[in-house]
Design a protein around this nucleic acid. Structure first.
Lengths: 160, 160
DNA sequence: TGCAATTCAGACCGGAATGATCCGATTGGG
DNA sequence: CCCAATCGGATCATTCCGGTCTGAATTGCA
């Protein structure tokens, strides 16, 4: 019940990206590594995975860099977590094709895991990157979510 | 974002315990290991941790064994998970005393993790052992909770 | 047009945490 | 008084994760 360090770093990275340029201008990995204090190779690896998942747009070359592919309000924690460490699956039973469970037949709790898994995933999906990027108080989770959405709502579209 | 195998096995164990004797009669670890198909040493270790957490009552000696310390409806998934793998903490920042984060000062997402962590924890706390133990459909998560309560409600107290 | 600087992308390796197992100590019943 | 069954801690192998490195691609400038 603890997400990997890379996922944690990815959230920090995305938050910094959203806060720095709002997802409009491009930002290079070196600069971001200096600002966040994370090791540069880690940032590079994370950028790779995030771009593969379609969360960030990358540009190669001298003036390369990356920026958010979608507005911050349209990116949830679940997206980031899934981009870094694969689909959210509390148990191997939820991974669909994985049939490693030896007690698959007598296991009567397996049908329930799907619902629990969806419940947890929805909890993470209800938190947007915009909420994380804001400098709100220590407990702005559920009630402020719907209030922050219109405030940071891209509306007419920031860049997309 | 994947809970440990031991936690998974613990849920299976607790579910089997609740289904077999309803938390009334005592059940030995050997019998439970045979029924669930889990390795006996694993069951023993899990019983140790669950008893340390106060979820099961253990009895030593020849006629020993264990049973649920509380009715199944009063035990949640969060309780089981926390009993096996410690407090639910998505990141090390939530672990309170852990100050290993090198970017503690500039990290502006840390205050938000507490709320997110509570959100996930509540999601697991909303699912009771009674729900997991039932043979209902694939998605009986929240609504059935209040309906199973009266059914399995100990009422006058089973043993306590 | 060619060079070079800067960037992303994938592969390799070391380390730590987890999972499974075994053995000794304790307790209760027959 | 002896035996049976359990709890608790200690040990070892294994998998996954985190970090680092090298290579390929692209753009800007001379």
């Amino acid at each position: 019940m603890r997400l990997s360090s890379l996922a944690d770093y990815a959230v920090v990275m995305m938050s910094a990206t959203a806060r720095h340029c709002g997802g409009v201008a491009r930002l290079n990995a070196t600069r971001l590594a200096e600002d966040t204090g994370l090791p540069l190779p880690t940032v590079q690896k994370l950028v790779s995975r995030l771009s593969a998942a379609g969360l960030v747009e990358t540009g190669r070359g001298a003036a390369g860099g990356f920026r958010l592919a979608r507005p911050a309000a349209a990116i949830s924690l679940a997206d980031i977590v899934e981009a870094v460490e694969g689909p959210i699956a509390l148990t191997t039973c939820v991974d669909a094709d994985r049939h490693d469970c030896a007690v698959e037949g007598s296991c009567r709790v397996r049908p329930h895991w799907g619902g629990v898994n969806a419940l947890v995933r929805d909890a993470l999906a209800s938190v947007s990157l915009a909420t994380i990027s804001s400098s709100a108080g220590p407990e702005p989770v559920e009630p402020t979510l719907s209030q922050l959405d219109p405030a940071l709502r891209p509306g007419a579209g920031v860049h997309a």
